[in-house]
Structure formats: structure tokens, C-alpha cells
Amino acid sequence: MKWHEVAIHTVEENEEKLSIFLNTISKGVSVEHSIDILKQKVDNFDEKFRLDPKDYPESNIRLVVYFDETQDIDGRIKDIKEYLTQTDLVNKEEIEIDRKIIEESDWENEWKKYFHSFRVSDTFVIVPSWEMEDYSYEESDRLIKLDPGMAFGTGDHPTTSMCLKFIESTVKPEHNIIDVGTGSGILSIASHLMGARSIKATDIDELSIKVAYDNFMINDCEEDIILETADLLKNEDGRYDIVIANILAHIIEEMISNSYDKLNTNGYFIASGIIVEKRDDIVNKMTEAGFKINEILEDGGWVSILAEKV
């Protein structure tokens, strides 16, 4: 299969708005920051990453999305250009759009150019499978082996890293967990590494299901995770100790009531993918539903919430 890669070059200030829009017309967005930006965001950057500057934007950021050959690529490009025209963005006149075709057989090498091991929390480390033999890790590290499929990120987005921090501090082996909108399956894998063995991962997209299963196999956890196609919690009849959802604010909003109903008493709702402007609305709706807000994390204009059913 052939894939159309569409890359938008812009300044970092436009990342939030463009990410939200691109997620509505594609299955996922990869945000690539220039090396200079990455160094500003990560302590001891040179010790944690082995990156080739040639594989990254020379300056600012690049947002990349992929569309398979069955989709109307000209229509998608038109949608993007219309959004750029109609939206209040910084340095709009300097935004550039590039497109190219990638053969699926070339996809693995494309990822290997710039996806390298990195630490995402105190103990979670994301390692591409092709670096496992060379990666030197601490005894306490929990390694998430990841081969991101087409149109899926590498776990370095703030919404994912904040979820992983909540999972690290919250998940216990005895917990019954559902990961809604699992995508690459990274949050289910993390829960498994915390000792949980009763996990369900769901997604409405069949490509997500395939990619998640492949990653579960790589991490030797496929036997402990039920993987199903589902639309959020609408037809879910199970009861859970933790509901995890790293999606978007308006979808999180739809899930609040159902999440409360599906949780056991003192169960947790880990919600991410929320832009900072929507934080108060989501918090208020969670509180109205009966949740207690235990902790809120914020990073790069994104918010993650740990709420408890009390």
C-alpha cells in the first residue's frame, strides 16, 4: 500500500491548534520539533537522545499526517489550506505544506531515522524494538517496546507522557483496567508493566487494533490484554477500577458520565488530550458527575486529569 505524507512547517505557537484540527481529518499527528527546541524542553538532552539533526526540521516544528491511497488526498490538502486561511495563526504567511508518497515497505526505515529510545517518566522508557540490543537501562526501568505503525506517534507527545506518569503512580496489580481509544496500545502496555493483568484495550479504528496487537506481541502481554473494536464506553458492560482515555477534550466530555458509571467506588479516571482552554469545563463536568479531582498535569498547552469516583 502507498501512503501520502503531508507535512506542515510552522512555528511552535501553532502546534496546539493545528494538532487538534489534523486529528479530525487523519488517524494521528506526529509533531517533529527542531533539535534546538527539543534541547530547551529536555534536561540533559545529549545524554538521553542520539539524534541526527538532518532528520529534524532546521527550525520551528513540522506536523506530519498520513493518508492511505484510498483517501482523497487532494480533498484533504484542500481542507488543510482552507483551515489555514480561516484560522488565526502565528506567522501564517510563512507556513509551508509539503507532500510525498511513501511505500509501506519503506515505512520502517522512515521511523528508524528519528525514533530513538527516551525516558518518559521516573521508570518508563520507550524503546523501539530495533534498539533493544543496544539500549543500556537501569534495573528499575520499565521498558515499553514500541514499533509505531503508520499514522501513530512514538509516545513523546505531552498527552501520552502525562498519562504514563499517572499510570506509574496509580495502577496496581489488582486493578481491572480499560484503555479507551488505545491507538498504539502504549498505555495498556504500561499498565501491564505495572503488574495489572486484567486489561481491556478498545478502539473504533481497525488500523489501531492491528497496530496495538502487534505492539502487545512485542511486549509479551497479548495474553493478558483483551483487544476489541468499540465506540468509547457506549456498549461496555464491564466494571473497572481504572478508565484511561487519551483522546480529545470533546470526546472526554462525552465519556464523563459513562466513565463514572463503569467505575467501581474509589476507581480512577485518567483523562488526557485536553487543551488547556478546556480544562476548567472538563473539571467542572467531572465534579458535577461525582468525581473528585486528585491531580492535574499540564505540559505544552495540554492537560491530563486524574479523577477519582468517591
Results as ranks from 00 to 15, higher is better:
96 E>D: 13
104 E>Q: 12
159 T>W: 06
152 F>Y: 11
193 L>V: 01
165 K>V: 04
148 P>N: 09
111 W>T: 13
173 P>Y: 12
135 Y>N: 09
190 A>M: 03
101 I>E: 15
192 H>N: 13
119 R>K: 15
116 H>P: 01
181 G>A: 07
102 I>W: 09
173 P>H: 12
186 I>S: 05
125 V>L: 15
122 D>L: 05
129 S>R: 07
135 Y>W: 09
124 F>A: 06
127 V>E: 01
190 A>D: 05
97 I>Y: 13
161 S>P: 00
110 E>D: 14
148 P>F: 09
111 W>H: 08
135 Y>F: 15
138 E>H: 11
177 I>Q: 09
123 T>E: 14
132 M>L: 10
142 R>M: 06
179 D>T: 04
159 T>H: 07
142 R>Y: 00
93 E>W: 03
174 E>D: 13
124 F>T: 07
164 L>A: 08
167 I>V: 10
157 H>G: 09
183 G>W: 05
172 K>R: 14
95 I>Q: 14
153 G>W: 09
190 A>R: 02
115 F>L: 11
127 V>C: 14
96 E>W: 02
97 I>F: 12
94 E>P: 00
179 D>E: 07
144 I>Y: 02
146 L>I: 12
173 P>L: 10
149 G>F: 04
110 E>Q: 14
131 E>F: 04
151 A>K: 07
167 I>N: 01
152 F>A: 04
175 H>C: 08
121 S>K: 06
186 I>N: 03
141 D>L: 01
117 S>D: 01
187 L>C: 04
147 D>G: 02
143 L>V: 11
191 S>G: 04
144 I>V: 12
161 S>A: 15
162 M>E: 05
171 V>S: 04
135 Y>I: 14
100 K>A: 03
98 D>F: 14
189 I>S: 12
123 T>L: 11
102 I>R: 10
157 H>E: 10
